[in-house]
Amino acid sequence: MTGQHGPAIVVRGLEKSYKDLHVLRGVDFEVAAGSIFALLGSNGAGKTTVVKILSTLLKADAGTAGVHGFDVATEAGKVRESISLTGQFAAVDEILSGRENLVLVARLRHLRNPGRIADDLLARFSLTEAGGRKVSTYSGGMRRRLDIAMSLIGNPPVVFLDEPTTGLDPQARIEVWQAVQELARHGTTVLLTTQYLDEAEQLADRIAILHEGRIIVNGTLAELKALHPPAKVEYVEKQPTLEDIFFAVVGAGPNDAGANEQEVR
């Protein structure tokens, strides 16, 4: 399985067990290039195990998987050159500034013009004003945005985001969602794992639900909704969502994510 044509990710019959615990029981899915694919499931469903196999950190017991046209088992080095992985906790150095974190990674990857790369990413993720500040002063949402920015150094075509909004407050989650949407706008393929239904609904082009080691449904949001037709009602009163209420109370909307970023924690 070589080359770079067709789907960005192909998974066939993936199985993984830990002694008597069968975590994956034959997982199949594909991810189109340049799309956001959400792997949705509760804790323990096997989402992180799938990501570890796809990122060559773990070997499958059975089945095959390819990323960017390369087989994860036989071409692990090529796969690692094609991906970036962001885990559940921001892997940033709090002593350094945001810009220094980016410059450091660019230098470690032996890229030219690390300063320009850092400045471009700071601008792309609305962190320019905070770029000179120590990361220890950043909010949770800012740290995660910086973490995602760091993962893009070297322009990997495929990015894995393993539960990127775990532990974040509602406004920080919106900030991270905007950062993920920014990835797709630039043509990056994103595989996102999450246990939050609203996150999958907001972000994903396609959603696969992983349950007890198997994909039990896979489709667009419209296709998934068609599986459960809406109930007929004579009168519907539009109630505000919790998100509407939250931003009405705090006085900021989803597009004002950077408005309160001067807060020092």
Score class of each variant (00 low, 15 high):
Glu261Ile: 07
Arg185Tyr: 06
Leu14His: 08
Ala179Tyr: 02
Thr165Val: 12
Phe37Asp: 00
Arg214Ile: 12
Val180Arg: 05
Gln178Glu: 14
Arg185Met: 13
Val50Lys: 04
Gly187Glu: 06
Leu221Gly: 01
Ile215Tyr: 03
Arg185Lys: 14
Val180Ile: 15
Leu39Trp: 03
Asn101Val: 07
Gly98Asn: 03
Val159Asp: 03
Glu75Thr: 09
His5Gln: 13
Lys59Thr: 15
Ser42Cys: 11
Ala149Gln: 02
Asp162Tyr: 01
Gln171Asp: 10
Gln171Phe: 10
Gln171Trp: 01
Phe89Val: 15
Asn155Lys: 14
Ser17Tyr: 03
Glu243Trp: 09
Leu14Thr: 08
Thr49Leu: 06
Lys232Tyr: 11
Gly41Met: 05
Phe29Arg: 05
Ser42Arg: 15
Ala222Phe: 10
Ala90Trp: 02
Phe246Thr: 05
Ala45Val: 11
Glu199Cys: 08
Ser136Met: 12
Gly6Ala: 02
Ile209Asn: 04
Pro230Leu: 10
Asn101Gly: 08
Val51Phe: 06
Phe160Ile: 04
Ala8His: 01
Leu104Thr: 09
Gly132Arg: 06
Thr137Leu: 14
Gln178Pro: 05
Glu100Leu: 08
Val103Arg: 01
Asp162Gln: 02
Ala90Arg: 03
Gly141Asp: 00
Gln202Met: 12
Thr189Ile: 07
Phe247Ser: 05
Thr86Glu: 09
Thr193Ile: 07
Leu104Val: 08
Ala226Cys: 10
Lys232Gly: 09
Gly66Pro: 02
Val250Ser: 11
Gly253Met: 05
His228Arg: 14
Glu175Lys: 12
Ser35His: 12
Leu191Tyr: 01
Arg107Trp: 05
Arg143Ala: 04
Ala204Pro: 04
Thr193Trp: 04
Val103Asn: 02
Gly87Leu: 10
Phe247Asn: 02
Lys59Ile: 13
Gly253Leu: 04
Asn218Arg: 10
Ile83Met: 00
Ile209Tyr: 07
Ala226Glu: 10
Ala8Arg: 00
Pro156Tyr: 03
Arg124Ala: 12
Gln88Ile: 12
Asp93Met: 09
Ile174Gly: 04
Gly77Leu: 15
Glu237Asn: 14
Gly213Asp: 07
Glu182Cys: 13
Ala8Phe: 03
Thr2Leu: 14
Thr128Tyr: 09
Glu30Gly: 01
Lys232Met: 12
Leu21Tyr: 14
Leu127Glu: 03
Leu146Cys: 07
Ile174Lys: 08
Leu121Met: 08
Val159His: 02
Leu161Ile: 10
Glu234Phe: 12
Val264Ser: 15
Met150Glu: 00
Ile209Ser: 05
Asp205His: 09
Arg133Asn: 15
Arg80Gln: 11
Val23Gly: 00
Phe89Cys: 10
Arg214Phe: 09
Arg112Asn: 12
Glu163Asn: 07
Pro229Phe: 07
Val79Thr: 03
Gly251His: 06
Gly131Ala: 04
His186Met: 15
